[in-house]
C-alpha cells in the first residue's frame, strides 16, 4: 500500500516536471523578444536590458531554464504585459469562480449521466436505450458554444427563467446564475458518463454472479442497486479525474458566453491581447491543478478499492 502511494507520488512529480519543461521549451522555441513585447516599441535600450536581466533573457537556454524553474518554485509567474499586475494574483482571484463552475458541472453531469446510463443498461435494446444512445451521440458531437447559445436563447431570452450571464451576488443568486453555464459545460460529461455507465453496467449484468442472484430470486431493483452498480461505477471515478482537462478547456468557451469571471475568460482576454505571461501562467496553473486532482482521485480509489493496491 505505502509503496503504491509512494510510486504514485513520484510519478506525479515527474509529470509536473514534464509539464513545466514542455511549456518552457515551447516558449523558448518561438522567435519573439519577450522583453520588447513587455515594454512596448518605445522603450529605451537601457530599460529593455534591465528587463532582460530580470527575466534572465540575457543568458543561454540552460540559464533561462534554471531561472524559470527557480521563479516557478517561488510561485512567481511573471507579470501581465497589459495590466502590469502579477499573474499569480490575477489567477488567484479568478480561480474560485472557475472552481465553482467546474464542480457544479461535474455534479450535474454525474446526476444526469449516471441515471441515464443505468436506464439504458437496464432496458438494453429497447426504446429508452436507443433514446439515451442518441442523446449521448448528440451531446458528444455538439460544439459547446452551440449548446451554450441554444440554452441561452431558450432559457434566458425566451422563457426568462435564468439570467443571461454574470456571476450573481452569492447564495441562491449565485446558484441561479450558475445553472446555464454549468449545464452547458456538463453536456459532454452527461453524454460520456451515460455511455460509460451503460457499457460497464451492461457488462456486469451479463456476469455469472448476477445470473445466480437473479436465479435465487433477488428483485431487479436490488440486483442493479446492490450487486451490479457497485462494480460498474469504478471506471466512472477515474473518468471524472481524466475529464478535468476537457472541463477546464470547455470553461474557456462557456465563461466567454455567460460572462463568468473565471480563469477561462482571463485566458481568452489574454489571447486577444497577446499577453503571453498570462496565457502561460493560466495553462501551467490549470495543468498543475488537474495533475494534483488526478493524484487525489487515485489515492481515494486506492483507499476504497483494495483490488487496486
Amino acid at each position: 500500500m505505502i509503496r503504491t502511494v509512494l510510486r504514485r507520488l513520484g510519478w506525479t512529480i515527474v509529470v509536473l516536471w514534464f509539464v513545466v519543461t514542455l511549456v518552457f521549451a515551447m516558449v523558448v522555441a518561438i522567435p519573439a523578444d519577450p522583453a520588447r513585447a513587455m515594454l512596448g516599441p518605445r522603450a529605451t535600450p537601457a530599460l529593455v536590458d534591465a528587463a532582460r536581466a530580470t527575466y534572465c533573457l540575457d543568458r543561454g537556454v540552460v540559464g533561462r531554464y534554471g531561472c524559470w524553474l527557480a521563479r516557478l518554485a517561488h510561485g512567481d509567474l511573471g507579470e501581465s504585459y497589459r495590466s502590469k499586475r502579477s499573474v499569480g494574483a490575477i489567477i488567484a482571484e479568478r480561480a474560485w469562480p472557475t472552481a465553482q463552475l467546474a464542480l457544479a458541472a461535474i455534479v450535474l453531469s454525474l446526476l444526469l449521466g449516471a441515471p441515464l446510463g443505468i436506464l439504458a443498461a437496464v432496458r438494453r435494446g429497447r426504446w429508452p436505450d436507443h433514446a439515451v444512445t442518441a442523446l449521448a451521440l448528440l451531446g458528444q458531437s455538439a460544439p459547446p458554444f452551440v449548446v451554450g447559445m441554444v440554452l441561452l436563447d431558450v432559457f434566458a431570452f425566451a422563457f426568462g427563467w435564468f439570467p443571461i450571464g454574470g456571476y450573481g451576488d452569492g447564495g441562491w443568486d449565485r446558484l441561479h446564475h450558475l445553472v446555464l453555464p454549468a449545464g452547458t459545460l456538463a453536456a459532454v460529461g452527461v453524454a460520456t458518463y451515460a455511455r460509460t455507465v451503460r457499457a460497464t453496467l451492461g457488462e456486469v449484468l451479463d456476469e455469472d454472479y448476477i445470473r445466480t442472484a437473479r436465479a435465487k430470486g433477488v428483485s431487479e431493483a436490488q440486483l442493479v442497486g446492490r450487486h451490479a452498480l457497485r462494480n460498474a461505477l469504478g471506471p466512472l471515478v477515474t473518468l471524472v479525474g481524466l475529464d478535468l482537462g476537457v472541463l477546464l478547456g470547455g470553461a474557456v468557451v462557456v465563461e466567454a458566453i455567460f460572462q463568468w469571471p473565471g480563469v477561462g475568460r482571463e485566458l481568452l482576454q489574454a489571447i486577444l491581447d497577446v499577453d503571453l505571461p498570462v496565457i502561460v501562467g493560466v495553462v501551467i496553473v490549470c495543468a498543475i491543478a488537474i495533475i494534483v486532482a488526478n493524484l487525489l482521485v487515485d489515492l481515494v480509489q486506492l483507499a476504497i478499492d483494495p483490488r487496486r493496491r
Binding site: F18, L244, G245, V252, V274, L276, A287, I290
Partner: peptide, 23 residues
C-alpha cells in the same frame, strides 16, 4: 502517459498562441 497528463485543449491553446507569433 506524460503527454496525456497535459490537458489537451489547454496545450492546444498554448501551442496555437505561440505558433501565432511565428512565421
Amino acid at each position: 502517459d506524460l503527454v496525456l497528463a497535459f490537458p489537451a485543449l489547454l496545450l492546444a491553446i498554448l501551442l496555437a498562441a505561440l505558433l501565432r507569433e511565428s512565421a
